[in-house]
């Protein structure tokens, strides 16, 4: 990971965090380019055969949630042994991951917002409807302001998924074979809150949102507050698991 280069010890944790965001973009650059092309050219190709009445970018933005979880989990799983073995302390690694998660979520959150707004212009120019699937029907996202409001919470959701992935990734490294079981309590909570925030058709395994019945009636502000609390709890859990994690013995 060349972007992990660091010059000074006190700043190392921050430069590591920033470098990791760049590494993810570099590592997945072809996938990201492919998704961008598919999101904007896909509807154009489909429009020859059918009416376009669903936002393609909405699906891209939702896939990015699960991708964020994968990035958080996958990277921490790989980074724990390689960085601690390279003389980075666990506390430094924890701060780096915090910076990484924040920069990553803000970055792709901005991309999600920019994408939805760009798509609104694009769909408008083509005479298509930028709508999303609700549970029973489809509905246009709305005005420019409503589109912005619809997209504005993506950075927070990406951070929530990233943090959830990080907890599961670091637990999987620490408890080989059983750590991944943390998906059982974490995903239903996160997925239910995500579904409660958007009254859209669940994106992912719908049954995971079974806790939604307890928060469906809650206001948007309350759900957002709950998501912030869940992020804080997940971050605290990841820190606790990481802070005294032993490196595994090498297998011949």
């Amino acid at each position: 990971m060349p972007a992990l280069a660091s010059s000074q010890l006190p700043r190392r944790r921050y430069s590591l965090g920033l470098g990791l965001s760049w590494e993810v973009l570099r590592y997945f650059k072809y996938w990201i380019i492919a998704v961008l092309i598919l999101s904007f050219l896909g509807p154009l190709a489909l429009s020859r055969y059918t009416d376009i009445d669903l936002s393609a970018w909405f699906y891209t933005a939702n896939v990015a949630k699960w991708f964020s979880a994968f990035v958080g989990g996958g990277f921490v799983y790989v980074l724990v042994p390689s960085l601690i073995a390279a003389g980075v302390t666990r506390r430094e690694l924890a701060v780096s991951l915090g910076v990484f998660g924040t920069v990553w979520s803000a970055g792709i959150g901005a991309a999600a917002i920019g994408g939805l707004l760009t798509e609104r212009f694009y769909y408008g120019a083509m005479g298509w409807t930028q709508a999303v699937e609700l549970n029973e029907a489809t509905a246009p996202i709305g005005t420019w302001g409503e589109t912005l409001g619809f997209a504005a919470v993506y950075p927070l959701l990406y951070l929530a998924y990233f943090t959830a992935g990080t907890v599961i990734g670091v637990a999987s490294y620490r408890w080989d074979g059983t750590g991944w079981l943390l998906v059982v309590p974490i995903l239903p909570v996160l997925f239910s809150l995500d579904n409660a925030l958007y009254n859209t058709k669940p994106f992912g395994p719908g049954w995971l949102g079974f806790l939604g019945r307890f928060v469906d009636e809650a206001g948007r502000g309350l759900v957002l507050a709950a998501i912030v609390l869940v992020i804080a709890a997940l971050a605290a859990s990841a820190y606790r698991i990481l802070i005294d994690i032993p490196l595994r013995s090498k297998k011949a």
Partner: peptide, 19 residues
């Protein structure tokens, strides 16, 4: 203790983490 998906060059560059 390497990331097996990295190239040899990238692995060497990771050494920069050390002062």
């Amino acid at each position: 203790d390497f990331d097996d998906s990295d190239t040899v060059k990238a692995t060497i560059e990771t050494g920069h983490v050390r002062l």
